[in-house]
Design a protein around this nucleic acid. Sequence first.
DNA 1: CGTGGCCCCTGTGGGC
DNA 2: TGCCCACAGGGGCCAC
Length: 273
Amino acid sequence: MPELPEVETIRRGLVPLIGTTIESVEIRRSDVINGLIGSRHSHQKGLLAGTAIVGLHRHGKQLAIEGKLGRVVLVQLGMSGQLLVEQIGAAMTAHSHVVWNLADGRRLTFRDPRRFGGITLHDSLKSLREAWANLGPDALEITEAQLRKACTGTRRSIKAVLLDQNAIAGVGNIYADESLFRSGVRPTRRAHRLNERQFLQLADAIREVLNAGVEGGGSTLRDYVGVDGRSGSAQESHRVYGRGGLPCVQCGGALRKTVVTQRTTVYCPGCQP
DNA sequence: CGTGGCCCCTGTGGGC
DNA sequence: TGCCCACAGGGGCCAC
């Protein structure tokens, strides 16, 4: 479900939970949690039972819930993941895998029908930082220099690099196509062959489309729902994503739909030479 | 070692 | 109207 703007919107939606104590945690499907070892008691502890939420962090599309003592629950939403704030006692929807019962009578629910997402436990902020250091720089603030570095020494296409979270963290399929269109770069272009101007324009475009998505409340996805379970209101109009065969907004020519790196890709043959 | 290909899984929307 | 299947925001792992 989420691209970076949705994850950031969810993070902001959860900020009001800071200071709230987690009373207990229900693991309804343990296989969504990576590296569960040890006792039931340690699982509860690792999932922050009995402690307060003290911070909410994001890097790329990953979201971290920080508890007291530096323990961290790292959530990856994958394609269909959701974090929902609900009232304790409300009907539990299908595919609700982990539930944090809060002291204020509400609960935080991790739902993920397709289960491409998951949860990883870290016992310290240091451990989280190390994991995030292995990812590329955050796409929301990507600089031209960082982008150029990610594209150096590889023979892959620029789209493959954009989608590689270890190269740049946070660009998904929609924003890869949107940023490539806005910078006039064909998705299949070898990454190392972009010129100076293209690196600059692409870095600018990535920041712009992601920031626009955040401003729009992360409502750029068809079945995205926020922490309140409602979908976003201001649907951003994508210029190429989902518009294969339709006229290009710049030149009027037909947008071409292909597959690059196993992902549906739409671009304008005229504007992205 | 870098890279492309395959697969994981469920829900849904569009075509027939 | 209803059924079926192609396809979907991601990313880990495996052979080359």
